[in-house]
Design a protein around this nucleic acid. Structure first.
Length: 199
DNA sequence: AGTGCGATTGACT
DNA sequence: GTCAATCGCACTA
């Protein structure tokens, strides 16, 4: 069962890799006019200091400025002109690092997610960073939002035990591609990525 | 003002 | 498994 209060910023680890692990098993909660939609985070990636694959690597720009907010804020951007991506900023103000949320296990509002996605299978509703944003109707209008506060989008807690967390290289990047900065709930059918990465 | 990308997805062999 | 669509934005000049 979900606990209806956002995570406190104070409990978020002040380290990008630690936060990426910490967020596995937590909830992304979206409040829509039709109702509440939520999912349990089953896959994340860390984009750390000095990481050539990170959007903050070359400093602040109009697009990535939310990445430089204090940890626990949303950085939403559009990839490939098509897919929205949800990140959680992960450090002190002025440091451009974050955690990409890559997949959710659908919990609340599953019929709404099906409508938003236009597909039926539960497994396909939020498996992938772009798909989860479609399912939860997350776009750039939510960029910069504080995720540790009640509102249209926030991070919550689930009372189930978190299972075994696996790690692998990150998906879809070319720079700094060999670092083990992807984390996933081992055995979850809601995780994206190939069989080889999810072993 | 022009150019060249992608932290992806869905369709197709 | 392969592959192209698609466009915001960073970068160069």
């Amino acid at each position: 069962m979900a606990i209806r209060r956002p995570l406190s910023r104070l409990e978020l680890p002040v380290d990008t890799v630690a936060l990426a692990r910490y967020l596995i098993g937590k909830l992304v909660v979206r409040e829509l006019p039709e109702g509440l939609v939520s999912g349990r985070i089953v896959e994340t990636e860390a984009y750390v200091v000095g990481d050539a694959a990170g959007h903050g690597y070359r400093g602040m720009t109009p697009r990535n400025r939310s990445l430089f907010l204090e940890r626990g804020h949303a950085y939403v951007y559009v990839a490939y002109g098509i897919s929205n991506m949800l990140n959680v900023s992960s450090d002190e103000p002025g440091v451009g690092t974050g955690v990409l949320i890559r997949a959710l296990e659908p919990l609340d509002g599953i019929p709404i997610m099906r409508l938003n996605r236009g597909v039926e299978p539960l497994r396909d509703l939020a498996r992938g960073p772009g798909r989860l944003c479609t399912a939860l109707r997350i776009d750039r209008s939510l960029d910069g939002l504080d995720l540790c506060q009640e509102g249209p989008l926030w991070l919550g807690r689930d009372d189930r035990d978190v299972g075994d967390i696996g790690e692998s290289i990150r998906i879809g990047i070319t720079k700094d591609a060999d670092r083990p900065l992807r984390f996933y709930l081992r055995g979850s059918p809601f995780v994206s990525g190939s069989r080889a990465l999810n072993r």
